[in-house]
Structure formats: structure tokens, C-alpha cells
């Protein structure tokens, strides 16, 4: 039997209204027909995805296909020319306010570019707390560093003194420190070695469960995506070419040719001849 998750809508409102309310209310994040244009280049050509509260949704696809642009558009950092973005059913305007960033945090793809090299880890973690006027900084910083597996010995290092993986852990700690409900994760572990990747993935799953977080996560590693996400969208050349459940991907039940090529390439390098 199918169960409707929400109480019935008020009298006098037709099914259409009810249906769209359910759709809008159930989605933590809904992106509809989104267009992003840089100069004259269309980076996103009518992209739609919908993510349930507490869901972990993956984005995979071609390099340059617009995955980061989609995340950046949600974060208010890309030139949207058409389409809508809604959080918890409420459509977002052009500007993102402070409250938005307490709710939505992003971990950027590039752990070098996103952390100021001349700041200590401590400063980098203090900053968001100061911006949002949060008091119990000391405790939050210690907990955040602990959560990402960086001992207190790292706290007063400058970010340029850290290895690639150590920087990415600082970036994740910084995103978590505001206790957001939605995390936009752009290749959060592609700079990490396998052992730290496993730790960070476990950490992300654990905080997602503990805090009921919603993830929108980009990764080019299909094993990581199928491990972390329930559903995913495959992107190519500014478009979503297929949306499917992770178990279907794992079982090679895919419809699109490009998705099939990705799966094949995931098997590793094969020397010709």
C-alpha cells in the first residue's frame, strides 16, 4: 500500500494543488529547469534534480559537464539565467542571506583554492563562527578537528603547511562547524588517499545519520557514489542524461550509453594490444 507522507490538504483544493504541495514539501532541495550561462556559454541547459530530506544524492559525469556549476548555483555562486531552486519547498531568490549559509554549506572541489594559505587552521575554523556570532567556538573547533581526524597538533599550522588530504579535512571541518542541514560536497575525497577517504566517507555517513543531513555529492568515482548515495544523476555536456538508483547502477541496469561507458571505464586501465 502506498502511504502519503503528509496530512491531507485543505478542503476545496484540487488534486493538482495537493500534488504540487507534496512535491514541494517533501524535497529538501529541488532544482527545476536550471540554466546557467557564462558569457555566451551554456554551462547548464535545463537541469532538474530533486533531493528528499535526509537523502544522499549523487552527481557523476563528464569533466566540464556542469556538476560544480550546479552546486555553485545552489550556493548562489553561479549566474543563473532561468529555472528555479527551492529549499524545503521555498523558492530561493537571487541573493543568499546569512540564514541560508547556516542551513547549506559547501565543500569545494579544490582544497587549495578554498582555504586561504596564509591562515592557520584555527583562524579558518574561527571565521565562520565569528561571521555567524556563535559563542562556544573553542568546543566546536576541538570537536570538528577531532571529527575529521586531525589532532590538536594541526590547529596552529598554516594551511600551506598541510598535505592535500589534510587540507580537505580542514575544509570539511569548516563546513560542519556551523551544523548545516544540507551539505553540498564537490569531490570531497578525490584529493584523499584510500585510508583517509574511507575515514572521511564513514565520517560523512555518520554525521548525516546523527544530524539527519541531506547531501548533494559530486564524485567521479562510481564506487564512492554507489557507496554513499541512494540515487544519482549522470551529467554530460550541461544536461542530466540519466537519473537512477545506486543499486541499479551497481547492477549495470542503466539506460544511457554514456552511463554505460562510465561503468566500463571504472574497471581500470586496459593496455591496448
Amino acid at each position: 500500500m502506498r502511504q502519503l507522507p503528509l496530512p491531507l490538504a485543505g478542503r476545496g483544493q484540487g488534486w493538482g494543488y495537493f500534488h504540487s504541495r507534496v512535491g514541494a514539501m517533501t524535497h529538501a532541495l529541488a532544482v527545476t529547469d536550471l540554466e546557467v550561462v557564462f558569457d555566451r556559454f551554456r554551462a547548464l541547459k535545463g537541469v532538474s534534480i530533486a533531493v528528499q530530506p535526509g537523502e544522499s544524492f549523487g552527481l557523476v559525469g563528464e569533466s566540464g559537464s556542469g556538476k560544480s556549476t550546479l552546486l555553485r548555483a545552489v550556493a548562489g555562486l553561479a549566474p543563473v539565467t532561468a529555472g528555479t531552486i527551492a529549499l524545503d519547498g521555498k523558492q530561493l531568490g537571487r541573493r543568499r542571506d546569512k540564514a541560508f549559509y547556516r542551513q547549506v554549506q559547501m565543500v569545494f572541489q579544490d582544497p587549495y583554492g578554498s582555504l586561504h594559505p596564509r591562515q592557520t587552521v584555527d583562524r579558518l575554523l574561527q571565521e565562520p563562527l565569528a561571521i555567524h556570532g556563535i559563542g562556544d567556538g573553542e568546543q566546536r573547533i576541538r570537536r570538528a578537528l577531532d571529527e575529521v581526524g586531525l589532532g590538536s597538533g594541526f590547529r596552529f599550522r598554516y594551511s600551506h603547511q598541510l598535505s592535500g588530504g589534510q587540507r580537505q579535512r580542514v575544509a570539511i571541518a569548516r563546513a560542519l562547524i556551523l551544523e548545516p542541514s544540507i551539505l553540498l560536497l564537490d569531490e570531497p575525497t578525490s584529493a584523499l588517499d584510500a585510508s583517509v577517504q574511507a575515514e572521511v566517507l564513514n565520517l560523512l555517513e555518520q554525521v548525516r545519520r546523527a544530524r539527519g543531513l541531506t547531501f548533494l555529492m559530486v564524485s567521479h568515482d562510481l564506487a564512492v557514489v554507489t557507496h554513499m548515495c541512494g540515487r544519482l544523476a549522470v551529467m554530460q555536456n550541461g544536461e542530466v542524461v540519466e537519473t537512477l538508483a545506486a543499486p541499479d547502477l551497481a547492477a549495470h541496469r542503466v539506460e544511457n550509453d554514456y552511463t554505460r561507458r562510465l561503468l566500463k571505464a571504472s574497471e581500470g586501465f586496459a593496455r591496448a594490444g
Binding site: S195, Q197, A198, L201, N202, D221, L222, T226, H227
Partner: peptide, 15 residues
């Protein structure tokens, strides 16, 4: 500790 497509290991083993 690498995730594998189709394997269902939560949490992943760590070092």
C-alpha cells in the same frame, strides 16, 4: 578500505 561497486560495507573498514 576502498569502496567497491556493488559491495555493501557500512562503515568501510579503516586502517
Amino acid at each position: 578500505c576502498m569502496p567497491k561497486i556493488g559491495a555493501d560495507r557500512h562503515p568501510l573498514p579503516v586502517l
